[in-house]
Simulated assay, not measured.
Amino acid sequence: MYLADYTWPELESYFDEKSLAIVPIGSTEQHGVHLPEGTDHIIAEGLAREAATRADYLCTPTINIGVSSHHRQFPGTMWVDAPAFRSYVESLSRNLAYHGVDRIVYVNAHGGNVPHLREVGRRLYEDEVAYAIEWMWDESIPELVTELFEQNGPHAGPKETSMVWYLTENVRAEQLEEAKETGCVDLADVQTHQNGARTFYDAVGNAETGSFGDPSDASKEKGEQLFDAACAQLVELCEWIHSQEFDELMPAGPVSNASAAE
């Protein structure tokens, strides 16, 4: 169920019965010459809403802008500073907790958000406000991604292209070959590290037009496979979290020598 579609009495009934919310989070940033800048939040919202429907959990409105300054050289890319992003997500999460939600799944589709969502989750965990965890769709189905694509790519590659194709068909198919030729098909072909140190900060340093992997290997049919498999993983995750006792999800108490000896 999508929160914004319901009245407050209807939502009160949900909070009386359940304490889990799904929060889709993405970005608005360049995704090569072939994908819309809304790619990440399109994917996050699609998965979050479908999982919420399948499992009858609450899905909030989507956070569309994330930590994306590493794509800033490309026109239209939007971003917020990391502290502002963390503060916003934490405030939203505490808002949910006020209504009785004590388990939150951040359905995230942007790699730049990952460390910040995990930090927010830790803050809520340590304060014993809520059990909030970050979930990245492609990390839930790595075997399928590897099976479908020879050159997967971490950004604007065939997996994201396939997902957008399935969800919206908003793919510039005529630009796929250009994306392959002018992007970075294989990260092994560019210098990303030196003596154990990561040597780049911005995507444009490795990919002229901002895409990684071989997007010409994408298809709507592959997107459907990815979507169904990832959605099933998300539903299982939500069911597992909902089944746990809240106290078991919260931090353990201090360890002492006496308790260890016993």
Rank of each mutant, 00 (worst) to 15 (best):
S27W: 02
E29R: 09
E29F: 11
Q30W: 10
H34F: 06
L35V: 09
G38C: 11
D40G: 08
H41C: 08
I42D: 00
A44Y: 00
G46H: 00
G46A: 06
A48Q: 00
A51C: 03
A51I: 03
R54N: 05
A55C: 07
Y57Q: 03
T62R: 01
S68C: 11
S68R: 04
H71Y: 09
R72V: 12
T77Q: 01
M78Q: 08
V80I: 12
D81Y: 14
A82W: 11
P83H: 04
P83L: 10
F85L: 05
R86W: 03
R86N: 08
S87Y: 07
V89H: 02
E90W: 05
L92I: 06
L92T: 02
R94A: 06
R94I: 08
R94C: 07
R94K: 14
L96F: 10
Y98S: 11
H99E: 11
G100Q: 05
V101H: 03
V101L: 04
V101F: 08
R103N: 12
R103K: 15
R103E: 13
I104M: 12
V105E: 04
V105Q: 04
Y106R: 07
N108M: 04
A109K: 01
N113Y: 10
N113M: 09
N113S: 12
V114E: 11
P115R: 04
P115D: 04
R118I: 12
R118F: 06
E119Y: 13
E119G: 09
G121V: 11
L124H: 04
D127M: 12
E128M: 15
E128S: 15
A132P: 10
I133H: 02
W135D: 08
W137L: 09
E139P: 05
I141D: 00
P142H: 10
P142C: 10
E143N: 15
E143P: 06
V145A: 02
T146R: 05
E147Q: 13
